[in-house]
């Protein structure tokens, strides 16, 4: 399949629905394995920090949620641009399906940051550039969520959200570089692409495992939500009706089967 073909196929909800069933499962199982092993490793077996002791372990939740929250927003920015230029309906569904997860991750990153800040900094919240720009990200997610609910016509709502998503992308480099551009209480980046992490492997490997695991969880969640969104939006098309009729048929056969096998259900003999 050439790239161009893939591009055209990705635009087809039906094709995506057909191939994505196993994808959600694979990503979900990967996420479970990675997140459980990364968290147990990080929270129980990784060494404590020389200054912060055990309170540093919240990094194993805080950093993955913050990274995925920003990546989810970048994905929405790209989907928004595709929707505005190519009018691809799948792009609007991606936009709609990403918001809840990204919003949750942003809120979690802010919450875990506050919990970490209290014992180490001495304050739950400080209005420095990093924390404030992350709060702006949360409000952008709120805005995207509210905007879609506020506009009844799907197509208009999609385009409005796309514009907001694209413009909001500007906040992402601000979050990333806030700790370099200004004096902040928040420390510098934990992971940098160009340098080795500033901690020993027994500390950063579980963190990397959790980051990867949370990406898989995000992927599984996105695919699951996309599938639901596809069925909801395409409910009137022939293929979804056929799908529903087929499932109803299977469900009926299964329940009839069970009735035959188990005899009269519980309660029938009373």
């Amino acid at each position: 399949m050439t790239l161009k073909e893939l591009w055209h196929r990705l635009g087809s909800p039906r094709w995506f629905y057909r191939i994505s069933g196993p994808l959600a499962w694979v990503l979900g199982i990967l996420a479970l394995v990675l997140l459980v092993s990364g968290s147990v490793w990080g929270l129980a077996f990784a060494p404590p920090d020389y200054q912060q002791g055990n309170s540093f372990r919240i990094i194993y939740i805080h950093v993955p949620t913050a990274i995925v929250a920003q990546s989810a927003y970048m994905l929405m920015g790209v989907a928004g641009a595709i929707l505005l230029v190519w009018r691809m309906k799948m792009a609007d569904m991606v936009l709609a399906a990403t918001v809840p997860f990204g919003m949750t991750m942003t809120a979690l990153a802010l919450f875990t940051g506050a919990v970490w800040g209290k014992p180490t900094w001495g304050a739950w919240w400080v209005w420095d550039a990093r924390t404030t720009s992350m709060l702006v990200l949360l409000f952008l997610y709120f805005g995207l969520y509210a905007l879609r609910q506020a506009i009844p016509r799907q197509e208009t709502a999609g385009r409005a959200c796309a514009v907001l998503a694209v413009v909001g992308v500007i906040n992402i480099p601000i979050i990333k570089y806030s700790v370099d551009w200004w004096l902040t209480l928040h420390q510098g980046a934990t992971f940098r692409l160009t340098e080795a992490p500033a901690m020993p492997p027994e500390m950063w490997i579980p963190l990397a495992v959790n980051v990867l695991g949370l990406y898989c969880f995000f992927g599984a969640n996105l695919v699951g939500r996309l599938r639901a969104e596809i069925v909801r939006r395409e409910a009137r098309t022939a293929w979804v009706r056929a799908l529903a009729a087929g499932e109803l048929q299977t469900a009926r056969e299964v329940s009839e089967d069970e009735v035959l096998r188990m005899g009269p259900g519980p309660g029938a003999g009373r």
Binding site: P47, P48, D49, Y50, Q51, Q52, F56, I59, T120, W121, L185, Q187, G188, A189, T190, A198, M199, P200, E202, M203
Partner: peptide, 9 residues
Amino acid sequence: KHDENYMPP
């Protein structure tokens, strides 16, 4: 303020 250099004791 703490920095991003974490290490075991």
